[in-house]
Amino acid sequence: MSQYETIFVMTPVLSDEQLKETVSEYVNLLKQKGAEIVHQDNWGLRKLAYPIKKKSTGFYHLIEFKGPGSVIAELELAYKRDERLLRFLSVNLDDHAVAFNDKFRGKSGSKSKKEEVKA
């Protein structure tokens, strides 16, 4: 039951409820597959460093969860199929990373709020 962390970037053209629906879709998928969500963090709309699919901003969402390794395969398969997502990345956390996350809960990503794009 190692700890994982996954981040996905959604296209900015989504309306609010589509956004929430996408996020809840993946959270439910994780729960079904027996993963336990440790922490969720929505960075909101952020400017991308380079345009992806002709979009220059994106909604970032981070999910930290504990679960068996098999969850990742299904999760990434669902990510690949979803065209609302511009980019995704899931990472296996070693114990230093877990300690770091617990200490700086939700600080690193949402900390840089100042360059938030006022959509």
Partner: peptide
């Protein structure tokens, strides 16, 4: 420091 975090671009 034990872990370099990839989510913090400023650092």
């Amino acid at each position: 420091i034990k872990h370099v975090d990839y989510k913090n671009p400023d650092y």
